[in-house]
Amino acid sequence: MIAQAQAAAAAAEVMVEDIANDVVTHLDKVPVPESDDLQGFPSIRSGSYADIGARRYMEDEHIRIDDLSTHLGSLPSPSAFYGVFDGHGGSEAAAYMKDNVKRLFLQNLQISRVDEVEDSLREAFLSADFALAEEPSVSTSTGTTALTALLLGRLLVVANAGDCRAVLCRKGKAINMSQDHRPNHPSERKRVEALGGFVDDGYLNGVLSVSRALGDWDMKLPRGSASPLISEPEIQQIILTEEDEFLIIGCDGIWDVMSSQQAVKLVSRGLRRHDDPEQCAKELVREALRLNTCDNLTVIVVCFTAKDHQRDTTPQRKRCCNISTQALYSFKSLLNK
């Protein structure tokens, strides 16, 4: 009963949470910024953790590339790429995305201008969706949500199709860098119904709990036709400042039981204690399990500061205990026996 009450309280907080929405969705067409003017900011460190949770099978996949220049050559410094793929109907689609990330998402990436980055990512998602349709090893009844985060200098670009979520921590405050694509969301429901689909008890056409995903070709109309289920990502961009501390990327197994602000607080506390993003990711997963999440769990934590920058190194005051004269006398008497 206690565990159920905790889960209900967490779910209630998720519903009423007030998250900042001051995310820049469309920047002016300017060159991709370098980070030289902020003296080595950001300094990239990341960690990740995954757990099967209460499910019988693990259908999540993720990827971490802290130094993208080792794969693509000369890029703004720093450069990094992260992705979380939450599969459904089987693990094939998510596994295919992870195994083919470089070819599908990075090979044709255009980065000289901000608008080119956004166009390249949008094309990459659509091409990845078509690749799943043509891949014989992937069933047409399986699919995956996809969220990617690209860092080029101080430019952070998040592309999302599905209900994974990216959350930026700015001075301790959670800023959602993606929108959960659930069929019940007003804008998604409007789009779905305008294209002939319907939402039944929160499920697209009574089947799927997301309104955007890669794969699931048995639910999509022929290529080139408008479909209620789409793979087009929503893209958010922001220029990082020294007020930005870290980014959390997680599948919906985390967000089903935890608010964005709760996750930010937990990671902030962990970084002050041990300054280890890998350990923070593990702590997020364990907290979601404690709150009785019912899904697979995958989390990536990306820090924007050098090691020990956020760690609390303040010396701890030593606690002194006063012993009464009578107690000290009794203790000495005991020793002399």
Rank of each mutant, 00 (worst) to 15 (best):
I2Q: 15
A5R: 14
A11Q: 13
A12T: 08
M15P: 04
N21K: 09
V23M: 13
P31I: 15
D37I: 15
D37M: 10
Q39G: 15
G40A: 07
G47W: 02
R55V: 00
R55N: 10
I63K: 04
D66P: 01
D67C: 13
S79R: 02
F81M: 01
G90V: 10
S91C: 06
E92P: 03
A94M: 06
L104G: 05
F105Y: 11
L121R: 03
R122V: 15
E123P: 00
L126R: 12
P136T: 01
S137P: 05
V138F: 03
V138G: 04
G143W: 15
G143T: 14
L156P: 02
V157Q: 01
C164L: 05
A166S: 12
C169D: 14
G172I: 07
Q179M: 11
D180K: 04
R182W: 10
P186Y: 07
K190W: 13
K190A: 08
R191T: 04
V192S: 01
F198E: 11
D201G: 00
N205E: 13
R223A: 08
R223G: 06
L229V: 02
I230T: 05
G250N: 03
G253C: 03
M258E: 07
A263R: 00
L266C: 07
V267M: 09
V267G: 00
H274V: 15
C280N: 12
K282H: 09
L284K: 00
L284P: 01
V285W: 14
A288F: 07
C294V: 06
K307F: 01
H309Y: 10
R311D: 09
T313G: 09
T314W: 04
T314P: 03
Q316M: 10
R317H: 12
T325C: 10
N336W: 15
N336A: 08
K337D: 05
